[in-house]
């Protein structure tokens, strides 16, 4: 940090660094990983999380091999396990708006900063830690 930044308080300094990092790499190309939220997940359970309404209902937006009825609001996830590491997949499932604030995909493991959540869901993430790990294991297996 050079002397020009010294009038800033610590927070502003942090922001400057962050902005520099983003400008340097471009929002979409940041390679960010997230550590596991718990023990390794199970791909079969993860497939269930992916398709079921009570789970993530990811099929609303994503096609995957072997599932007939699925939407196309998001990209098809065939072969996602070869394009992204488990840590990168987890990073996106937990809260993809950290990569791109304009993202359309819901933040599946975040409870803060949400507005107007229906009482039945308030304070709860869409997916709990185990479901996140299961779905990460499932997507990692799509090669």
């Amino acid at each position: 940090m050079n002397a020009d930044v010294t009038p800033m308080n610590a927070d502003e300094g942090m922001r400057a660094v962050a902005i520099a990092a983003v400008l340097g790499s471009g929002c979409a190309t940041l390679s960010l990983e997230q550590a596991p939220l718990g023990p390794p997940g199970d791909a079969a359970r993860g497939r269930e999380v992916f398709v079921s309404r009570e789970g993530g209902h990811c099929v609303l937006c994503h096609r995957v091999p072997g599932v007939r009825v699925a939407g196309d609001v998001g990209p098809a996830l065939e072969g996602i396990g070869t394009r992204l590491s488990p840590g990168e997949i987890r990073y996106r499932v937990v809260d993809i708006t950290r990569l791109n604030p304009e993202a359309v995909m819901p933040a599946f493991h975040r409870t803060e900063g949400l507005a107007r959540v229906a009482p039945a869901y308030a304070g709860r993430p869409v997916l709990d830690a185990r479901q996140v790990e299961d779905v990460v294991a499932y997507l990692g297996s799509l090669r």
Binding site: M14, R15, V17, A18, I19, A21, V22, L23, C27, L30, L32, T97, R98, L99, N100, P101, E102
Partner: peptide, 10 residues
């Protein structure tokens, strides 16, 4: 930090 990075794109 990452959170701030998000705001930079916002």
């Amino acid at each position: 930090m990452l959170f701030l990075a998000a705001f930079a794109c916002a």
